[in-house]
């Protein structure tokens, strides 16, 4: 199963994961990390790198979700993308997480990325 890692400014990601679990039930292999004011980006990078390496050793793929492109969480994610080929999605929202959790037992990483991306955008409506 694909490992889901969410990294955000503040604890938005942690709450987002809780919201997703409220709907989809408790999730294995899903983690959210908060980056708060005063936290070291270097420490965040090490924490994330440890997760990626551990997942690799278990033959588990990781998808990293971050809030905004250009922020420190996304810089850490892009670092992993460049170094380990880890897949990254920016602009994390609830629709994409729900899609991902619904499909990750059956789909490949590429399919999941595609579905999450489409659901993330499709979940935004102007009414």
């Amino acid at each position: 199963m694909v490992y889901v890692l969410i990294i955000t400014h503040g604890c938005f990601g942690k709450e987002l994961l809780r919201s997703a679990e409220l709907i989809m039930g408790e999730q294995q292999d899903a983690k959210a990390i908060c980056l708060n004011l005063g936290d070291e980006v270097e420490a965040l990078r090490n924490e994330v790198e440890d997760i990626i390496i551990k997942n690799k050793s278990l033959n588990k793929e990781t998808i990293i979700f971050v809030d905004v492109l250009g922020g420190s969480p996304s810089n850490v994610a892009l670092y992993m993308s460049n170094k380990y080929g880890t897949k990254v999605i920016t602009g994390v929202n609830l629709p994409m997480l729900l899609e991902l959790f619904a499909s990750r037992n059956t789909d490949t990483v590429e399919e999941l990325i595609d579905k999450a991306f489409k659901s993330g955008i499709g979940g935004i409506n102007k009414i």
Binding site: L69, G70, G71, S74, L78, Y79, N82
Partner: peptide, 14 residues
């Protein structure tokens, strides 16, 4: 090169 790429990508849509 890796970090250069990270910073270039981080402003991709800006």
């Amino acid at each position: 090169p890796l970090m250069k790429n990270v910073y270039s990508m981080s402003a991709l849509t800006s």
